[in-house]
Computed example of a mutant assay.
Amino acid sequence: MLWKRIGLDDFGFPDVQNVQSYKKNYIKHGILHSEGVELCRTNKDSKHIELNETGRQNSELISFVDRNYNSGIFLSLSRNVKIREPISVEFNMDGENPVVIDKNIIIAEPGSEATVIIDYSSDDTEKVFHSGLTVVHSEENSVINIIKVQRMNNMSRNLDSNIAVVEGHGKVNWISVELGSDVSGVNFLSILKGEASESVMSSIYLVDGDRRMDLEYSMIHRGVRSVSSIESKGVLKDNARKVFRGNIDFKRGARSSKGVEEEYVILMDPEVKSDSIPALMCGEDVVIGEHAASAGQIDENKLFYLMSRGLSERDAKKLIVEASFAPIISRIPVESLQMLISNEVERRLVNA
């Protein structure tokens, strides 16, 4: 596997032939037993969603998880079932549980609704590894919100693949928060299959030290009047490297569809390297596609204004970064998780 843009020319999967099941109780909050809801740990007998199209998704990563997964959830919602409280899944890796390979399957029948939060963390002393696959099938008029937070230590490696198939008038909202790990490769793919289907990706990332991150977000439009949005905000500091790929692909037949993607990156040090590759592909005439990408240092006028009001340069920069991230963090429906993310951002900006 090659990630040359982030300086990782030869990456191999660790030997996980004898990996044990993740021993901790990772389903922290959620309806375990309720009419119309099935929520359990993923096992070999769980239903499988066949995908005929995976876009540019890395099949090697998916195959690795399929062969070796040791954890994950299976969630099935019956027609018109709406879960108001978020389902919370927490994977904390340590010396006894250094490997998490999670396979998560979410099936939302017509009219159903749920929010799933998955938090990946680790202690500060162990070199740990995460690889995951999350597959969502959003049927007609269903709404699924997926929030993923990755805050593993700087010795760890993180590989995460995510796929959604969205039927007519269904909606899948992704929120991705990438704050940790030495090397992180993350991709999200939404296949907008039905009429007026919708997918929204909102992400923040912070890459510091010598860390490297590869992000790919793809929206495949097949349905008439389908809608997609990619909004990504990031910060690079020290010697960090990052590549971002945003793909919006209008297939023939996806007339009257709209896709928008934008990425904004704050470069805090001259040694960082940021590659942004937005792409629009169009096989249909009557569509609207927009993309924007910007990368630059903190606005000197903003910095001067804040410092003139008594803030130190460090605190002023921190405030500007926090203000950039705040609109996305505020969409997370758990206040304690919002605070945890804000504290981790502050730690990496100020103390790391």
Rank of each mutant, 00 (worst) to 15 (best):
E195Y: 00
A196D: 08
A196R: 07
A196Q: 09
A196L: 04
E198L: 10
E198S: 11
S199C: 09
S199A: 14
S199Y: 11
V200L: 08
V200M: 09
V200W: 05
V200N: 12
M201Q: 08
M201H: 13
M201A: 09
S203L: 05
S203Y: 04
S203T: 13
I204Y: 11
Y205G: 00
Y205A: 06
Y205N: 02
L206M: 09
L206F: 07
V207N: 02
V207Q: 08
V207Y: 02
V207D: 03
D208E: 13
D208S: 12
G209I: 03
G209V: 02
D210F: 12
R211P: 01
R211E: 04
R212D: 09
R212H: 11
R212L: 05
M213S: 07
M213H: 02
M213A: 07
M213L: 09
D214Y: 01
D214M: 02
L215G: 05
L215K: 01
L215E: 01
L215A: 02
E216N: 07
E216F: 03
Y217V: 03
Y217K: 03
S218P: 00
S218C: 00
S218T: 00
S218D: 00
M219Q: 08
M219N: 07
M219T: 05
I220S: 05
H221Q: 08
H221G: 10
H221N: 10
R222D: 09
R222I: 04
R222L: 05
G223H: 01
G223E: 01
V224G: 04
R225G: 08
S226Q: 05
S226Y: 00
S226E: 02
S226A: 11
S226F: 01
V227T: 14
V227D: 12
V227Y: 12
V227F: 15
V227N: 14
S228R: 02
S228E: 00
S228H: 02
S229Q: 15
E231I: 15
K233L: 11
K233T: 10
G234N: 11
V235T: 11
V235L: 08
V235K: 03
V235F: 04
L236G: 03
L236M: 14
L236P: 00
L236A: 09
L236H: 08
L236T: 15
K237C: 07
K237L: 12
D238W: 07
N239Q: 14
N239Y: 15
A240N: 07
A240T: 08
A240V: 13
A240Q: 06
R241C: 13
K242C: 06
V243K: 12
F244R: 14
F244K: 13
F244L: 14
F244I: 13
F244G: 11
R245V: 12
G246C: 06
G246I: 05
N247D: 07
N247V: 06
N247A: 04
I248M: 06
I248K: 05
I248S: 00
I248G: 02
